[in-house]
């Protein structure tokens, strides 16, 4: 029997003509959101690694301290830090750099002598957790007055919380997209059962099982979901490449690298396959359930 002579002419229905588009859009949205979540998770992991493998030492001015006193404390602190095992780089941030960083807020005519600005030492570790920061902070503050160690814990917590929230949001949206696609398949399938009720009755009366009838709907659901998935998947790939190129052109250092690892591309490839499976199984279960109401 040729395709045009399928026992149930499901491909001629209007709902069948719309379904590939609906599934295509769902696959597109699902793939783009999943890609976004994966890029964000990778960026957050990179940020986290960077923050845990570094800390900042601040040396604050002391009232009545003689000229050059703070410089002496900065040098001593830097010397101590360079001798700590696990410390890779100790970078004393020049006072001018600190001033330059504040210029957008405080204006260009700022005089370093007028403000009790702390001096900053940027410290990079050989690897995350290579130094016991609490012990180091205690040792530094014991030996040098006015020293504070910032482990970036607050920022790490904030970023982690933001990323978790966004991941949860992405998961919820993907699940909702899945449910929407299922609802569309259920609607199209029920419509098909209603439209072809007479033919289904004849099939039953000549001995067709529910599975035989369900197969007709399954095949159609698979066919249209495959069309939609290919369309949505290709569109998602084009979008991701385009977005990647756009970010690369921006040369924005703060934005994460938009590239996906090979396993992440595989995960994206699972989205259309999953869409086909969900559509096919949803059609099958919907038909079987509807057929049970028939004699």
């Amino acid at each position: 029997m040729s395709d045009s002579q399928a026992v149930l002419p499901l491909s001629r229905e209007s709902s069948s003509r719309l379904l590939p588009w609906i599934i295509g859009i769902m696959v597109y949205l699902g793939a783009v959101i999943l890609a976004g979540a994966m890029v964000l998770a990778a960026a957050a992991a990179a940020w986290n690694d960077e923050l845990t493998a570094a800390f900042t030492v601040q040396i604050t001015p002391i009232d009545g301290e003689e000229d050059g006193g703070i410089e002496t404390r900065v040098r001593n602190a830097a010397k101590m830090l360079r001798n700590v095992p696990g410390v890779a780089i100790v970078n004393v941030v020049p006072a001018e750099t600190t001033m330059a960083a504040l210029e957008p807020w405080l204006g260009p005519n700022l005089n370093a002598q007028d403000l009790p600005l702390p001096r900053v030492i940027d410290v990079r570790l050989e690897k995350a957790g290579a130094v016991d920061l609490a012990a180091l902070a205690k040792q530094l503050s014991g030996d040098i007055e006015g020293v504070a160690v910032d482990s970036h814990e607050y920022w790490r917590g904030q970023i982690e919380s933001l990323v978790r929230t966004l991941e949860l949001l992405a998961t919820v949206v993907i699940v909702l997209i899945g449910f929407s696609a299922m609802a569309a398949v259920v609607f199209a399938t029920r419509s098909g059962v209603a439209v072809h009720r007479d033919v289904i009755e004849v099939l039953h009366l000549i001995g067709a099982t529910d599975q035989y009838v369900a197969q007709q709907f399954q095949r159609q659901a698979f066919r249209v979901s495959l069309m939609g998935s290919v369309f949505g998947g290709l569109l998602a790939v084009i979008t991701l490449f385009g977005f990647g190129r756009l970010l690369a052109d921006l040369d924005a250092a703060l934005l994460p690298a938009p590239s996906l690892a090979p396993w992440e591309w595989i995960a994206l490839g699972v989205v259309p396959i999953l869409a086909c499976l969900i559509a096919t199984m949803t059609a099958r279960l919907t038909v079987i359930r509807a057929l049970r109401q028939m004699p």
Partner: peptide
């Protein structure tokens, strides 16, 4: 085997495919 009063043939299928249905479903 049933011959229905209104035939109940499947209109979009050929004569061949209509007659073949009982064999195919089995």
């Amino acid at each position: 085997g049933v011959v229905f009063q209104d035939f109940r043939l499947i209109q979009h299928l050929s004569a061949f495919d209509n007659v073949a249905l009982p064999l195919r479903v089995s």
